Simulated assay, not measured.
Amino acid sequence: MKREASETPRSVAFGFEDDCVTLPIDAILPLRALRKAAKSSRKYRQIVASIAQIGVVEPPVVVRSPDGSATWLLLDGHMRIEALKDAGAREVECLVSTDDEAFTYNRQVSRLAPIQEHKMIRKAIERGVPEEKIALALDLNMSSIRRKIRLLDGICEEAVVILKDKPATGAVFHALRKMKTMRQIETAELLVNANNYSVAYVNAILAGTPQAQLVGAAKPKKVKGVTPEAMARMEQELARLQEGIASIQDTYGQDHLHLTVIKGYLGKLLGNARIVRHLAQNHPEFLDEFQTITEITPAEAAEAE
């Protein structure tokens, strides 16, 4: 479709000004106070270590003071500013927001997943950054850095793709490494479907994995505190669970479509006053169920599935 000659293209509203500005730290007013425990947290120590080694990676976000004074309001970067103050810095380069909405920008950003962190560290090493410097910047010891470097050793590419943006810890990959390729993929899908990446859950899946699907198939599987009989029952239960999940996945789209059509049809029926009176007088139990179906929201429908 051609644009009419009289129409003018809409301009894009930018969230930040074009250039960063270097501001005196004393002129930046935080919009919230840090908790007392913040400076003893691991996150704060990592920020301090990162600034000491490579400087400020992500500039704080500020907005001009509405009263026209020389002060600036700090929208995001409170811990970075505190770390800079503790380090004796007097100035900092900032991003200037065009919106004075006082929300925390980081709440809109996904946290770095372990696989993403692994790839970031590997890429830094490929570019010649020493492991020691990476450890100092992340406030980690060398053994932790090496574990992160080897995170995906023995993990199939399909499982990596499934878990690439998930909060799967090193313990998850340690368990996956004991499984064969197809079982790794199945386990990754189970973790995502359950939205559970805990050590206990992945170890339960490992315990319920048949011996033939483990890397060391010739070596008898042993799980502390679990008898062979209990292990056999866990394997059977896990197999049934996987069959149930597969069945739901196969029919989810069709079931959702049927529910949408039924909901629309019942909505039209209940819009007829004569039908509603008939149901109320002769089949009140049907009327209650029909009304319940028409009031189902998309979120409730997903939960019902």
Results as ranks from 00 to 15, higher is better:
129 V>N: 08
137 A>W: 00
142 M>Q: 07
121 I>R: 11
124 A>T: 07
142 M>N: 04
119 K>C: 10
115 I>N: 04
107 R>S: 09
141 N>M: 00
110 S>A: 15
121 I>V: 14
139 D>P: 00
112 L>P: 05
107 R>Y: 14
136 L>G: 05
126 E>F: 09
130 P>N: 05
127 R>D: 10
141 N>K: 03
143 S>M: 07
135 A>F: 00
121 I>C: 10
129 V>H: 08
107 R>Q: 13
116 Q>A: 12
139 D>G: 00
104 T>G: 08
131 E>K: 14
110 S>R: 15
114 P>Q: 03
133 K>F: 05
123 K>A: 15
121 I>W: 07
119 K>V: 14
124 A>S: 10
145 I>V: 13
140 L>S: 04
105 Y>W: 10
145 I>L: 04
121 I>L: 15
117 E>N: 08
114 P>V: 06
140 L>M: 13
132 E>K: 12
105 Y>N: 00
136 L>F: 02
113 A>C: 07
130 P>C: 05
110 S>G: 13
143 S>V: 11
143 S>H: 05
109 V>E: 06
106 N>Y: 01
109 V>I: 15
116 Q>S: 08
120 M>P: 05
122 R>V: 15
113 A>V: 03
144 S>W: 02
126 E>I: 09
104 T>Y: 09
142 M>D: 03
137 A>Q: 00
110 S>N: 14
119 K>S: 11
108 Q>D: 04
142 M>R: 03
109 V>F: 05
131 E>A: 13
113 A>K: 04
107 R>N: 15
124 A>W: 11
144 S>L: 07
114 P>K: 06
104 T>H: 13
129 V>I: 15
134 I>C: 05
106 N>I: 05
128 G>P: 04
123 K>N: 14
139 D>N: 00
107 R>I: 07
117 E>C: 13
125 I>Q: 01
132 E>R: 12
136 L>D: 06
125 I>V: 11
131 E>D: 13
110 S>V: 09
143 S>D: 10
127 R>W: 09
141 N>V: 01
112 L>T: 14
111 R>C: 03
114 P>G: 07
143 S>Q: 09
119 K>G: 06
145 I>Y: 03
109 V>Q: 10
135 A>M: 00
108 Q>N: 04
133 K>H: 09
136 L>S: 06
131 E>P: 01
135 A>N: 01
139 D>W: 00
132 E>P: 01
143 S>A: 11
126 E>W: 11
121 I>H: 10
124 A>F: 11
117 E>K: 13
116 Q>D: 05
130 P>I: 05
119 K>E: 15
136 L>Q: 08
110 S>Q: 15
130 P>G: 04
104 T>L: 11
106 N>P: 05
140 L>V: 06
123 K>E: 13
132 E>L: 07
132 E>F: 04
106 N>A: 11
117 E>P: 03
106 N>S: 10
131 E>V: 14
122 R>W: 06
123 K>T: 15
138 L>E: 00
138 L>T: 01
122 R>G: 09
109 V>D: 02
121 I>Y: 08
132 E>W: 02
120 M>N: 12
